[in-house]
Computed example of a mutant assay.
Amino acid sequence: MIVPFSPGGASDIIGRIIVLSGLNEELGQQIVVDNRAGANGNIGAQIAASADPDGYTFLFGSAGVMSINPSLYVSSNLKPTRDFIAVTQVADIPGTLVVHPSVPVTSVAQLINYAKAHPGKLNFGSSGTGSLNQLQMELFMRAADIKMVHVPFKGGGPAAIALLANQVQVYLSTLSTSLPYVKGGRLRILSVIAPQRRPEFPDVPTLAESGFPSMTTGTWQGLFFPRGTPRTIVDRLYGATVKVLERAEVKRGVASAGGEVVISKSPEAFTAFVGSETERWAKLVKDVGLVAK
């Protein structure tokens, strides 16, 4: 299984949980996790796409790699909706809308009003130009009719540190990143990006509850085979993965990594989901005028 990011990140952790907690056993094969980082995930994805479609190589893909990168890296030959067979979604990592405590707001509505009353005063951080959390914030700002200044960083860690230092005031962070800082009183959470409220913050509304019904998914992750893989192999991996994801220990493990298990109804359903996500982000990338350098 190719993970297109370095060891220790959310994709790597959740991918290893699924493999080590039963996928080896269900498939009767020893699965090796192969981290191939670089080019915002494109290097690993290209290696997976070029692999023989014999069922022995599959990709642990994510929203950024599979749905955003195609619009950012316009010169790349990689087209995930063409080059891969979607098997199933496995997890979603909820996002959180957090602010530095110096910002005098305690709700999404108050943030919107404050941003309108103080144009250009608020900076928002991201893990990089064209990153999922930048695009999510661009989507939020357009829907809310507000403007904040984008400050990109080289990864989510540096962006979180900048927020703690009040170098930026707003950040759409993964739940796993923001959780300790919110619990410790160093950041204030306004909303979560998830289909429903999170048990970690049962009193915090979702963005959908706050008036943004299209913003319900965080950083989704799933399994993909190279194009040309036989349907019988696709079905076998789908069935084995569903069995593993239904295990209580796997759900606990994914939750401990800041995510939640999500199982697609079928490979076709996941294919449709990836296609709709790709179209959604392509439109936003074009509207914002982003091109990866």
Score class of each variant (00 low, 15 high):
68 I>H: 07
67 S>V: 01
33 V>E: 10
109 A>D: 04
75 S>W: 01
96 T>H: 09
50 S>D: 14
103 V>I: 11
67 S>N: 11
114 Y>L: 01
100 H>L: 01
53 P>V: 07
58 F>R: 06
88 T>E: 12
49 A>L: 03
75 S>N: 12
82 R>G: 04
46 Q>Y: 02
92 D>H: 13
78 L>C: 09
69 N>L: 05
52 D>E: 15
51 A>W: 06
65 V>P: 07
66 M>T: 11
75 S>D: 12
82 R>M: 14
56 Y>G: 13
104 P>W: 05
116 K>H: 10
39 A>I: 00
55 G>K: 12
89 Q>P: 09
69 N>K: 11
59 L>H: 08
56 Y>I: 01
84 F>E: 08
87 V>C: 11
43 I>Q: 05
65 V>L: 03
97 L>N: 02
92 D>G: 14
70 P>W: 06
83 D>A: 04
109 A>P: 03
97 L>R: 00
43 I>P: 06
63 A>Y: 10
53 P>M: 08
96 T>P: 01
113 N>S: 14
68 I>V: 14
46 Q>P: 05
61 G>Q: 01
75 S>T: 09
84 F>H: 10
64 G>I: 02
52 D>P: 06
116 K>I: 03
108 V>H: 09
100 H>A: 11
31 I>V: 11
111 L>S: 10
60 F>R: 01
51 A>Q: 10
118 H>G: 10
47 I>M: 15
77 N>P: 11
52 D>C: 07
76 S>H: 07
84 F>T: 08
120 G>S: 07
34 D>K: 15
74 V>A: 15
86 A>Q: 11
69 N>Y: 01
117 A>V: 03
94 P>R: 05
42 N>A: 15
57 T>M: 08
79 K>P: 03
109 A>H: 09
84 F>M: 13
77 N>H: 07
98 V>T: 12
48 A>I: 00
119 P>T: 06
40 N>H: 13
98 V>I: 14
120 G>P: 09
42 N>G: 05
89 Q>C: 13
87 V>H: 03
124 F>D: 02
100 H>K: 00
91 A>T: 09
97 L>P: 02
104 P>Y: 06
113 N>K: 10
48 A>P: 02
33 V>F: 05
121 K>W: 00
46 Q>C: 10
46 Q>S: 15
110 Q>K: 05
34 D>H: 14
54 D>L: 04
103 V>S: 10
120 G>K: 06
109 A>N: 03
56 Y>S: 15
106 T>C: 07
66 M>N: 12
32 V>N: 09
80 P>F: 13
47 I>Y: 09
75 S>Y: 03
42 N>V: 08
88 T>H: 10
71 S>G: 14
114 Y>F: 13
51 A>R: 07
112 I>D: 04
33 V>N: 09
64 G>L: 07
123 N>A: 14
109 A>R: 04
120 G>V: 08
122 L>N: 01
106 T>L: 03
95 G>D: 07
92 D>I: 11
45 A>M: 13
44 G>R: 00
117 A>I: 03
54 D>W: 02
72 L>D: 06
43 I>A: 07
55 G>S: 06
52 D>L: 11
101 P>C: 09
37 A>Q: 13
80 P>K: 09
119 P>N: 04
50 S>I: 01
86 A>S: 12
99 V>L: 07
103 V>L: 15
79 K>N: 13
118 H>V: 02
62 S>I: 08
57 T>N: 05
124 F>T: 00
98 V>C: 07
95 G>Q: 04
50 S>N: 10
39 A>Q: 11
